[in-house]
C-alpha cells in the first residue's frame, strides 16, 4: 500500500494528467453551461416578473418572489443534472485511479454501498430509519485484513412543530468495517462521550442508566474514558478486546481526525463511523483538476481511512486466528 505523497505526485503527472486534461475541459464546459443557464434564467425571471406584474392579479412583490423561486428551481434542476454527469466522470477518472494507486487490490464501486444488514449489525445507531442511501463502496484486503467502507447517509422522517414532515439525519459520513484480529462472542459499542465530560460522576451515573445499550464498561485508560463511553455485554471480554494498547491507538486516531468517532466490535468484526458534513468523494466544481493540491486531498482522505488497519494493528493476527 503506497502512502507516499512524492510517489503520488509522480503518478499524478505520469498516469493521471492526460485524462485529467480531458476531464478538466468537461469541467470548464460544465461551469460555462451553468453560467449560461444562470444568465438565461435570470432573463426569464425578469420577463416573468414584468409579465406577472402587468396582470392585476399579482402584487409586484408576489410576482418577484414567484419569478425568483421558479427561476431558482429551474437552475437547481440544471445544476443537479450537469454536476451529476461531471461527478460520475470524476469518480471514474480521479477516485478510481487514486484508489488503484493506493492499493491495486482494492475494488471500487461508485454506485454501491454497504448493506443495510451490515449497518444494523454494527449497532452503532439504534434509531429506526426511513431512508438508507450510500455510494462509493471500496472493498478488498489491506495488509491481509478484509475491509469494506463507503459514504453512507441514513435519515428519518420527523414532524416539525408546524406539522410538516422533514428529513433528519441519523448518520451521514464514512461507514467502515473490517475483520478484527481477536475472536470474541460478546458485543462492545464505543460512543462519543458527552455526559461524563460535562457532568463528571453524575454523568457517569446517567450513562449507566441507558438500558438500550447494555452494561456500562468503565475502562482504566483516562484519556479514552474522556473521549468515549463504552457499553458491552461482558465485562471481561470487553477488556479482552479493548487492551491498553488498542485504547491508546484509538485515542491517537481520535485526536488525529478531531471528529466524533463511533466504534463497535461485534461478531469478530470492527465497525467504525465518522460524521462528515459533505460527501467524501464528490468533486468540487469550482476547483481545477490540474492542481495537484486539490487531488492530493482525496488521496489523503483515503490514506487516513485505510490506515485504520495499521493504526489499530488489525493486521497483527493472534495465534488462534492464524
Amino acid at each position: 500500500m503506497k502512502t507516499n505523497l512524492a510517489s503520488l505526485m509522480d503518478y499524478y503527472y505520469d498516469s493521471m494528467y492526460p485524462s485529467l486534461k480531458v476531464l478538466e475541459e468537461k469541467r470548464l464546459r460544465t461551469l460555462f453551461t451553468l453560467k449560461k443557464a444562470a444568465l438565461i434564467l435570470c432573463g426569464i425571471a425578469v420577463l416573468l416578473f414584468l409579465f406577472l406584474s402587468q396582470n392585476a392579479f399579482f402584487k409586484p412583490l408576489h410576482a418577484a418572489l414567484i419569478s425568483a423561486i421558479l427561476a431558482f428551481l429551474a437552475f437547481m434542476f440544471v445544476y443537479r443534472h450537469e454536476s451529476a454527469g461531471y461527478g460520475m466522470l470524476f469518480k471514474d477518472q480521479v477516485i478510481e485511479k487514486i484508489i488503484h494507486f493506493l492499493d491495486p487490490s482494492l475494488s471500487y464501486d461508485k454506485n454501491n454501498s454497504v448493506s443495510e444488514h451490515e449497518y444494523q449489525q454494527s449497532e452503532l445507531f439504534l434509531e429506526s430509519y426511513d431512508r438508507f442511501s450510500g455510494n462509493d463502496l471500496i472493498y478488498g484486503k489491506i495488509e491481509g485484513v478484509d475491509v469494506r467502507f463507503c459514504d453512507l447517509h441514513v435519515e428519518k422522517k420527523i414532524r416539525t412543530k408546524n406539522g410538516q414532515e422533514e428529513w433528519s439525519d441519523i448518520f451521514k459520513g464514512l461507514f467502515f468495517r473490517a475483520d478484527f484480529n481477536k475472536n470474541f462472542h460478546s458485543k462492545v459499542v464505543i460512543l462519543p462521550d458527552i455526559a461524563e465530560r460535562n457532568l463528571g460522576v453524575l454523568g457517569s451515573w446517567i450513562q449507566g442508566m441507558n438500558i438500550q445499550r447494555g452494561e456500562l464498561i468503565k475502562l482504566d485508560h483516562m484519556e479514552f474514558e474522556k473521549f468515549f463511553v463504552v457499553y458491552g455485554s461482558d465485562q471481561i471480554e470487553s477488556r479482552y478486546i479493548l487492551s491498553h494498547t488498542l485504547m491508546e491507538h484509538i485515542v491517537q486516531f481520535r485526536k488525529k481526525i478531531d471528529k466524533p468517532l463511533y466504534l463497535s466490535f461485534i461478531d469478530s468484526q470492527l465497525f467504525l463511523a465518522l460524521h462528515y458534513n459533505k460527501p467524501l468523494f464528490e468533486p468540487i466544481l469550482s476547483r481545477s483538476l490540474l492542481e495537484f493540491d486539490y487531488i492530493k486531498d482525496y488521496f489523503e482522505l483515503l490514506v487516513m481511512i485505510t490506515s485504520i488497519v495499521t493504526e489499530f494493528k488489525l493486521n497483527e493476527k493472534l495465534w488462534s486466528k492464524r
Binding site: 468503565k218 475502562l219 482504566d220 465485562q235 471481561i236 471480554e237 470487553s238 477488556r239 479482552y240 487492551s243 493472534l318 495465534w319 488462534s320
Partner: peptide
C-alpha cells in the same frame, strides 16, 4: 501461543475484577 492468549484474557479479567472492586 495458547499461553499468550490466555495471558491476554487473564489480564482482561484482572482489569475487570479491579474495576468491580473499586466500584
Amino acid at each position: 501461543g495458547t499461553l499468550n492468549e490466555l495471558e491476554e484474557q487473564i489480564s482482561a479479567a484482572r482489569r475487570a475484577y479491579n474495576q468491580s472492586v473499586t466500584d
